[in-house]
Every structure is written in C-alpha cells, then in structure tokens.
Write a protein that binds this DNA or RNA. Structure first.
Lengths: 351, 351
DNA sequence: CTGAAAGCGCTTACAG
DNA sequence: CTGAAAGCGCTTACAG
C-alpha cells in the first residue's frame, strides 16, 4: 500500500513512506498529543503551542500522513471539492475554461469534480444531485440548460456559479459574456469591409447566447441601413456539420452573398470546408468571420477572423467566484468585453 | 436543502423531495427494518425477503434517499470512483478519450475523477497520491510521464491501467497503440504518391511514441530504397507552433521537399499555416499528412490526410479494463490497428 | 434471512 | 491552549 510513493518520490522529490494506511490517530500518538490537536494544527483551526505544533508537524512528516478526504468531508462537512458541470468534457471551447478552473482551484487547495450534462436538462439535474450527494462545497455550471428557477433553487442548498446567464440570488453568481456586442462587432467589421450581402449562420436556438448573437447581427445591419434578408439567415446547431450544411444550403439556393458570419468558430470551420468544396475561396470570394476564437482557429487556412471569447479567464473567474461565495464574500468578477480579431479570412468586398 | 430538486424534477421527471439530509437510518425506521438490511438491499449484498425489500424500496423512494458516497467510501472501502490522470484537460486529442471513459463508467455506476498532470512527472506523482488518498477504486493514467517502475509500484496499491506503455504486472494493464505501423503507413502513402523528398516533423522526444513514429518514417523510406536525409527531419514538440516553426526552418534552409509527414495533427495544422504563409499550396506544392485524426482535422482546408487514432475507443477500453481489474478479471482489450485516412491534403507528386 | 455493534478516519462543540 | 466524547452516514463481520 502506498508503496508506489517511494518510486514516485524518486522522481518527484522527498516524500512519505509507510506500509499501511497512516491515520491521524497515529500521528497524535507519535506526537504525544490528542487527535483533536493534530486536527486543529493541520487545519489551522486554532492557536496551538509551538512545541506541540512542531511535534505534530514532524510526526506527520515521518509517518507520511495524508488526511483522508472522505473522512474529512464526512466529519467536517467540507470536502474542499467543487462540482463543475460542463456540457461536454471534450468541447473545444470549454476545455480552456476547465483548465482555468483547475488553475484557480489548485492553489486554493480545492479539487474540481467534472461532470458532463450533454446539453440535457435531465442529465444536468442528475449531475447536480450527484454532486450534492458528494458534498461538494460549491458548484459551477458552465452554460446550464436547466431553468433559472431550478438553478436558483439549487443555490439554496449550496453556493452556485453559472455562466451564460444573468441571475440574481443569494449564494448564486452569474458570469455572462456580452454576446450581443460581440456579434455586433463581427458584423460591423464585415460591413466596414464593404460587404452588403452578409449571410448569418445562426447558433442553436436552445442557447440563450444564440439569440443574442443573432440580435447583434441584425442590429449591425440595421444601423448600417442594410436590408435584413431572412433568406440569408441559416439555422445552425453550433457544430461543424451545421456550418457545412448551411453553406450547402446557401449555394443550393443560389443566394448572393460575399460574406458569412458564423455564430461560432466550429460552424465557421464547417462553413470553410463547404466553401472549399464549392470552389469558393476565402477571403477572395467570400469573407468569413466566426465567434469564440477557438485555439485551433488561428491555424485555419486562412486564419479565421473572429470574436475572442476568454474561455480560460471565464474558468478562472468562475472558480474564483465560487471560492468567494464559499467564503461569504460577494463575487464581483466580470468578463472582459468582446474583442474582434481580424485575421486572414475577412477582406475587402470586391467592387 | 436539496430544495432545488423540486425544480429540477419539474424538468427531469419524478424524483425526491425532503428538507434536510435523508439518511439510511431514516429509511430503515420508515421501513421498519434495521439499517443493515437497508444497506444490504440497496447494495444487493445479500438475499432479503421480498416483503422487506418492497418496504425498503418504497421508503427509499418516498424519502428521496440518496446514499452519501463519502460515508459509503469510508465505511465500505469502495468509492465507485475511478481516478483518471490526463496530461491536459483541454487536450484536443484526449478529450475524446475522456468522453469514452465517462461513457463506459457511467452505466457501471462509477464516476471518473479527472486530474491533469501537465506532462510533469512530479505533478503526476502528486495526482496519484491525491487519488489514492481519495480512495478511488482504480486509476487510469493516459500517457504517463512517470517511470515504469513508479507505475508498477502504484499498481501494488490499487488497480491501474496505463496507455502508451507496454507494462506487465499484477493489477496493471497497458493499452498501447501501434505508432510504428501508423507512421509506416503514413510515409508509405506519400511514397506511393511518388514523393521522394519527404520531410518529417518529429514529435516530442520525451514521448515514447515519438521515437516509434520516427522509426516508422525511416523504415518506410528504407523499404522504398529512398535516402534518409537528416536535414529533412525537424524536431517538434507535438504542438501547433512547433509545426509552424518546422516549416519556417525547412523553407529558410532552402531545403527541397514535396511532402511533409507531421508526427501529429496539431503540428500538421501548424505546418499548414506555415506553408500558407510561404505561399506554398497544399497539396499542389506540398503534400501534408498528419497523425491522430483530431476531430478538427477533417475540417481543415484542405481536409487533412492522417492516421486515425481511436481516442474515444481508447478511453472506453481503458475504462472497461480498469473495471475488469477491479472485478478481478484479466483485461484483454486491444486497440484497433492504425488506419490511414486519405483526404485532400495529399496528392500525387508533380513530375 | 436479519439485528446489534463496532468501526471507517476525521472534526467539532463541550468542558476545562 | 487542549482533551474526551460524540458524531458524520454508511458497511460489515459477528451472532443468531
């Protein structure tokens, strides 16, 4: 048992040894104090005489004591773990957010517990239940699919942070990105380049951000006094295939357009493939702009112009906020404003 | 407490209610049996009379009892959780593997506990320690960086499954992909197309698979009686930037080449950008082949020819194997053979 | 087939 | 500042 540590230590540095499970009681015995004292010292829960502190610290080290999180959680009510429900563990967009959460939680001594809800409200409810049963100290839900009411109710049981929503409640904090402005900027960019026939590949209607992005698109057109042509708006599902299909549809309909604004980079990637297949060149024949700024988008050929969404920061801020909520501090985090990244996929409209 | 369930249920279907934490004892009381019996019924640990079983099941339902995993783990020694150490939670390649693990574990009643080691042996050792302290029932390590000895030692404490390694030990199972053959096929493909000056962007030397892929490249050249030119081999780090830099290097050196085989798709993506920047067209001027078949590669312009690596299956098989190890069954899973995917980025060499 | 009891490894009021 | 004691919510020998 724990024998592997000897090996790991050889690579990882100094550490512990021990055949069988080392318990707090053993440490107490070795240090000549009561278990309560050991607990207090290890948790910094109370002021303890320096002599005992040293003895305990030493005993802890020589025995290689590692507290059992299960016991800690059961007895103390705190598990130092944060439930994180994401929609898909392999989402190219949320990956960075998850890393941000890890990076923020780790130094604070908390561990994330990731669960995927797959955009299914029932599954999401189950995640919440499981996480709650596991006694996590707080939950962050990335782009929830559950109703505002359900989320708010959840926050009555424990601190909750959600993204992509604007909720106000005790123990509940929302972190939202300005999708409207982002879409506005993207569309304005295309308009500035002289495009007047700009197709829009919309996002999945079930996401609140999809309608915001659509609104940004329409508002930009309106502000520029450009006609809004419903035929140029193609519904999408936020994944690559729908971007591809959208272009196929546009071309099949014989619609005129010199630019495409896709509601996210994944659809833009699909659209790029569609254009390629139809022999349409980006940006020579059609300008293309996405939304999100996925890590891969800068490596597209040509690199994709897009709206940067700070996924990593989103994760860090969400994690920092849940930690504040747990501490009893009111979070004040705010996401940076949308930023347009002009790259090679968008160019001046031809005369 | 748990109040949110009422809301969730409205969307998720029927379920539980309850103000305060419902314990197994409360269920026992309501059902008129002992806690032991409740435990046995819920765990299927022993045969129980039908009458009591019904009573318990009903009480469980009316109270909305959800067992506390912490208590279960502490008392029973099993947590029904599997530690999964990945190198980066946002890796485009391992994302699919993580999903495969989720999908396999979920129906079995197990939960994954994801941790990232960031390709750092010390961090990896720490992950193992934390996971062990959390009393996971088993651990799967994706592409470990720790020594074989350390991994084997870890397996003495609990079941372990590793990928990208060929270890034999009690309670330890390895799942490895045939990188050599994959690289061989990729190179052969280019040779078959008539290319004789094939550059190779190598992978990070710290990964065992990198040398295997290199070996595949060399073996293919040798078999075709093509000269191996060291100048055509550029070291890479398995990430996009190194692919970009490799191409810059190749071009700067004025080297002649009509094809590039990148040791993974991420570097191929970087290489594609590099070629684009230098005005070299794929596949007209240079054929490009990658390795991995990332989800995004099929959306590259042109779609990337590559060797398919079954990341999702890898995850499923790894999870299935750890479950078998826990059960005491010897895993026999094997990864499918490398498969060449010919897409638009590779073409006949010009005469 | 089924209870009573002990115990998993901690933490936290409660008393000094 | 520090112990003894009770308890967190379950499971599992141990006895019927």
């Amino acid at each position: 048992m724990k024998n592997y540590r000897k090996q790991a230590d050889a690579q990882a540095g100094p550490g512990a040894t021990g055949k069988t499970t080392v318990t707090l009681d053993m440490v107490a015995k070795l240090a000549g104090v009561s278990p309560s004292t050991v607990s207090r010292i290890l948790n910094g829960t109370a002021v303890v005489s320096d002599a005992k502190r040293q003895a305990v610290l030493e005993a802890t080290k020589t025995l290689g004591f590692v507290p059992n999180p299960l016991a800690r959680g059961l007895a103390g009510g705190r598990t130092f773990s944060i439930g994180v429900v994401t929609q898909a563990i392999d989402s190219p967009f949320y990956g960075a957010a998850l890393r941000g959460i890890e990076d923020e939680l780790d130094p604070a001594g908390y561990s994330p517990l990731f669960m995927s809800a797959h955009w299914d409200p029932a599954a999401e409810a189950r995640c919440l239940e499981v996480l709650h049963a596991r006694r996590v100290d707080g939950i962050v839900v990335l782009m929830p699919r559950l109703s505002d009411a359900a989320l708010t109710a959840c926050a009555q049981a424990l601190p909750v942070v959600v993204t992509g929503r604007n909720l106000q409640a005790e123990q509940l904090f929302s972190l939202n990105f300005d999708n409207f402005t982002g879409a506005l900027r993207a569309t304005e960019h295309l308009i500035d380049l002289g495009h007047t026939r700009i197709a829009f590949i919309a996002g999945d209607e079930e996401h609140p951000d999809a309608s915001e992005r659509m609104r940004g698109y329409r508002t930009a057109l309106h502000a520029a006094k450009l006609a809004f042509d419903p035929a140029l708006v193609v519904p999408g599902k936020y994944h690559e295939v729908s971007g591809l299909e959208a272009v196929n549809h546009l071309v099949a309909q014989g619609l005129q357009f010199t630019a495409i604004f896709a509601a996210n980079d994944q659809m833009a990637a699909g659209a790029a493939l569609g254009l390629f297949q139809h022999g349409l060149r980006v940006p020579d024949d059609v300008s293309l702009v996405g939304f999100d700024d996925l890590p891969t988008s800068v490596y597209a050929t040509p690199p994709l112009s897009t709206i940067h969404q700070p996924a990593y920061d989103l994760g860090r801020l969400a994690a920092a906020s849940i930690l504040q909520l747990i501490t009893g501090t009111a979070p004040t985090a705010e996401l940076p404003a949308p930023e347009l990244l002009v790259r090679g996929s968008s160019a001046q409209a031809r005369a």
